[in-house]
Design a binder for these strands. Structure first.
Lengths: 251, 251
DNA sequence: ACAAAGCACCTGTCTATACATTTTAAACGC
DNA sequence: GCGTTTAAAATGTATAGACAGGTGCTTTGT
């Protein structure tokens, strides 16, 4: 609850595809985009319901529904009498925080850094197109990043990115933000799937992770979509001795 | 969409604590109770919004909110023009189906069988009480079951069960139903958490799973609650070469 | 000066109404 | 009898209005 002033609302609906969808859905999308793109910072106060009503000429109940659902999804925190604020944690990491390893490491009070090992642009091979689950001959980016927690390797992140949706992926400075953060800003994910396995990594990977050849690793393969388009396919490799997944479900 | 008739609504608010809470919340609680208690079966049609309005004298928007949120939470499925139905799948298995390995094996068209290795009744040790997260000196059951898929070991299921909630756990025939199925029938879970790790199993476990000592395994530790009471804590061990977890998330 | 009351603003909920869209079934025309 | 139209019912969304309750600032009273 640091900021009290509310951001401008004139450009709320910018950069939004004008696919026919309900007002509340457009509002949700616009607001979550503001948040994931970083235009609205964590703990910043966002416009009140009545402000949005006045600015956009919609009903308060419609705004209320959008804000309520975004709150349930973890984007926002609301306080009666005070206002609505951008939430600390991310919605989709309610189950698996590994989306953004930098954030998770920071949450444990540890130091995070990363090394960019590979970053290249290419036409997708047949195999990569299969992995992405898209029609062939898409332009793609491929990146490999090694993440550290307190200078100990914690994750190898291998990623194929749909160049159509993230045209500037190769121009990013991944020491400033993770690839996940950049991808969320240009193509916020709406769906995803992951596959979790226990494997023995390759010798090269063992070396990079500084582990013995016999140490099992958690491998998470994940594909994420924005609408109907696949955004990225990632393979995350964690040393079993330094990492575990935590999940919670409840009715 | 099998049943067309709607269940009775007179007793909707029975068995509900009359803590001061909003109408929509009471409705949600009452309906989810009908479902988890089995009074409303899967795929059964539930009363329409207007029926609830007439029966309970509340606004349709209030009913709509309750049903909409329960749908988002996976309890219900709604079809415009048709009605509202009890959802097929359990909410918590949307991510991890390993709750019921027998069902999952059957879904793959394979043969499932299991061997009961250990089944004993005891007072909880301090360590077990810690694992269960309850006050000490609870009566518990402990079981170890080996599950096979097509006669190949696929899971070691080690489990501690709260005897207060499942008093007849030791009298079950686990060749007829899995422990998960029995526990769901006597104490339907409302919450759970799991911890996923890649580990190297012990020599005994390697022998039971018929794997080499160097083969990594996926270990899932899971605790589940029914209301405020913990029901069971389980440790599930899967050979990495024969098993992977699949999850899906979407907005 | 200081405490109390008042007030503005915010979220939370509930209601009543309206219209759109989808589906099924009944009524109708031939 | 068969295809078409129509109507009813259900969900989906949007609006306007009302009141409750929480928070913080301002005004008022002493």
């Amino acid at each position: 609850m640091s900021e009290i002033t509310s951001p401008n609302l004139a450009n709320l609906f910018d950069d939004l595809p004008d696919a026919p969808q309900p007002i509340y859905a457009k509002l949700k999308q616009a607001i979550s985009l503001k948040i994931t793109s970083g235009q609205w910072q964590v703990n910043q106060r966002i416009p009140s319901e009545s402000e949005v009503v006045k600015a956009l000429g919609v009903s308060r109940m419609t705004v209320n529904r959008a804000l309520r659902e975004l709150t349930a999804e973890g984007f926002l925190v609301r306080h009666q009498g005070l206002g609505t604020f951008v939430a600390e944690k991310k919605a989709h990491s309610a189950l698996f925080e590994v989306h953004n390893i930098a954030e998770e490491v920071a949450a444990r009070g540890h130091k995070h850094r990363s090394e960019l090992l590979v970053l290249e642009s290419a036409k997708a091979t047949v195999e990569e197109a299969m992995t992405l689950g898209v029609r062939t001959n898409h332009g793609i980016f491929r990146s490999v990043v090694l993440h550290f927690e307190n200078d100990l390797p914690i994750q190898i992140e291998e990623r194929i990115v749909n160049a159509n949706l993230a045209p500037d992926y190769d121009k990013q400075d991944f020491s400033l933000h993770t690839s996940y953060e950049y991808l969320m800003s240009v193509a916020p994910m709406t769906e995803g799937e992951h596959l979790v396995e226990a494997i023995l990594p390759s010798p090269i990977e063992c070396e990079r992770l500084r582990i013995k050849a016999s140490e099992p690793c958690l491998q998470i393969k994940r594909r994420t979509w924005a609408g109907d388009d696949i955004v990225t396919a990632a393979r995350l490799l964690h040393p079993g001795s330094r990492f575990q997944l935590f999940g919670h479900f409840g009715r």
